[in-house]
């Protein structure tokens, strides 16, 4: 596990990585704080002050029924954390075993699987969510399942070549040991080698899941009415377009900043874990790189 510490330090050294880590930490902190403290009670509303702009007691103003916008965004952070954690876990649970199966199983089994993966990869996440929502209704669970499954397919395709490479190198080693020992050793060898790529992909899944929550909630398949979430706040703000355009800004800003942070974190992770990229940053003597 020393390696994870090293990677984190590499990420932290890059401005993009540091920005990503800080924002992610901030989101987690706000989610934690919102469990024990809020500027205003969640359900307190004052219809007389509906759509009021920023003030000292309501720094981000109040919504259409006079609830405190900041309070709702803070509690909405919890939904974001749930969606992110759920989606990445499902994506990893679907993607890594599928990647391993397509990489390691006999070609007669693996090849049809690969074709299936190549086809399913085109299935839009949102349509999958809608298909799930038609019989079951919308919820954060719908978002998590749809994003997790669709992203898992992508992860399986990206990790497959890496798993193959490692497995080939370990083939002799593994074949010497028999039975379950070989399988365990294979997993023990493969997982640490695939972890960097998987980590980068999972940071992308995290970003995608936040965007998906916003889109799906808007369409009515994500956070149900009355549940605090950033997507919910964004959807509800449409009603205020004419009276309080500023109300549109805050939830979008929260989503955009967090997604940006996760994307940048992914970039930094990629650079920190890909030795090829790291090398190109400091051209060695005599290495001829580009023209322009």
């Amino acid at each position: 596990m020393r390696r994870i510490g090293e990677v984190l330090r590499e990420v932290w050294r890059r401005p993009r990585g540091a920005f990503g880590l800080v924002v992610v930490a901030l989101v987690l902190l706000v989610a934690a704080v919102s469990l024990v403290w809020l500027p205003h009670p969640l359900l307190q509303s004052n219809p007389a002050e509906r759509w009021s702009g920023p003030s000292l007691s309501h720094p981000l103003g109040q919504d259409g029924i006079g609830r405190d916008t900041l309070t709702w965004l803070m509690v909405g952070t919890q939904a974001t954390v749930k969606v992110v954690v759920g989606s990445t876990v499902v994506a990893a649970l679907v993607g890594l075993p599928l990647g391993a199966a397509t990489a390691l199983l006999h070609a007669r089994v693996a090849e049809p699987l690969i074709v299936v993966v190549d086809i399913l990869i085109a299935f839009p996440t949102l349509l999958l969510a809608m298909v799930l929502a038609a019989p079951f209704g919308g919820s954060l669970g719908t978002v998590i399942l749809a994003v997790g499954f669709a992203s898992g397919i992508t992860i399986s395709r990206i990790t497959r070549p890496e798993i193959r490479k490692v497995a080939k190198a370990d083939y002799l080693l593994a074949s010497r040991a028999a039975g379950a020992g070989a399988v365990r050793r294979l997993v023990g060898h493969i997982l640490p080698n695939v972890a960097p790529i998987a980590l980068v992909q999972l940071s992308i899944v995290a970003a995608v899941s936040i965007l998906a929550e916003a889109g799906l909630t808007y369409l009515g398949y994500g956070a149900p009415n009355g549940m605090p979430s950033w997507g919910r706040s964004l959807s509800d703000s449409q009603a205020s377009l004419q009276v309080a355009p500023l109300a549109v800004v805050w939830p979008g800003l929260a989503i955009g900043l967090t997604v940006l942070a996760l994307n940048l974190l992914g970039d930094a992770l990629r650079e920190a874990t890909d030795p090829r990229l790291r090398r190109t940053r400091q051209p060695a003597a005599g290495v001829i790189t580009g023209v322009a």
Binding site: P283, G286, I288, T289, G290, V291, A292
Partner: peptide, 14 residues
Amino acid sequence: SLTTLAVLGLTPRS
């Protein structure tokens, strides 16, 4: 090799 690229003005930007 870098010496020949320098003659052409094609050394890497960095």
